[in-house]
Amino acid sequence: MNPHLCRVALRPRGPLEVFDLSLRLIHAHAGRFLRLGLLFVLPWALLGGAAVALSELDVLVLVLLPLIFFPLQAPATLLGGRLLFADTVSIRSVVYELTSMLRPLALAWAWQAGTLSLGVGCGLVPLVIVLPVTAYITETSLLERVGAARSFRRSARLAGSNPGIALAASAGWVALTMWGALVAESGGQALIGFVLQLGQPFGALSTGQITPYMIFGILAVQPIYAIYRLLLYVDVRTRVEGWDLQVGLRAAGLEER
C-alpha cells in the first residue's frame, strides 16, 4: 500500500462530473459505506423518525435536524479521505481516528455553526455568500489536521479561489437533501400504504406533515453528500494547488530514491 498514490484519477472536473465520481467511489466501497451508515445514520434516523412519529414536535425536529448533519458527514468524509489513498480501510480505524479528533472537529463545527447563524441573522443574501465560505471546513479540519481557525481560513481561501465550485457544494447539498426527502417519502408511502396496505400511519408530506420516511431520506443522503463535497474539495485543490501534481511528483520522488 503506497500512501502517496491516489486511487482516484485526478484531473480538473466540473461539479456535475464530480458527483458522478462520488457515486463511483461509494460503489467501489459499498460495503464499508453501508456499515458506516448503519453505525452513524441509522440511530439518528430511528431517533428522529420516532420523534416525529410519536410526538407533536415535528417542527422542532426539523429545526434541530441540521445540528446532526455535521456529525453525520464527518465520518464519511474521513472514510472517503482515507480511501483516496488506500484500498482497504477498516471502519474501526475510522471511528478511532474520529474520536481522537473530537476537539478540533467540535471547534470547526462551532466555527461553521457560528458563521452560518451569523449569515442567517443577516438575512438570506449573506447566507449565499457565507455558506460557500465554510464549504470545505470539514475537509480542511479532518484531512489537513490543522486547528479550527486555520481550517476556517483554508476553507475560505479555497472557496474564494474558485467560488463556482464552492457554490456548487452548497447547491448540491440543497438539491441532494431535497431529493433524498422526496424519494424516501414517496418510496416509504408506496411501501407502507400501497404494497402493505397499511394506509398512512405517520401522515404524509402531501398533507403538510413531517414523516419518518422523510427524516430517514434527509439523513441518509448526508454521507453521500459528504463524499461529493470531499471530491469537490479534491477538485478545487487540483485546480488551485496542483494537488494531482503533488501526488504525482511525490510518487516519482519516492521512485527515484
Binding site: 460503489h27 431529493w179 422526496l182 424519494v183
Partner: peptide, 19 residues
C-alpha cells in the same frame, strides 16, 4: 422515475460501473 424523481434510476446508476 419511480417512486419519484428517478429514485430507482439513480440507485441503478450508482450500482452500475457504467452509470
Amino acid at each position: 422515475f419511480l417512486p419519484v424523481a428517478f429514485g430507482i434510476g439513480v440507485l441503478t446508476m450508482a450500482m452500475d460501473p457504467r452509470l
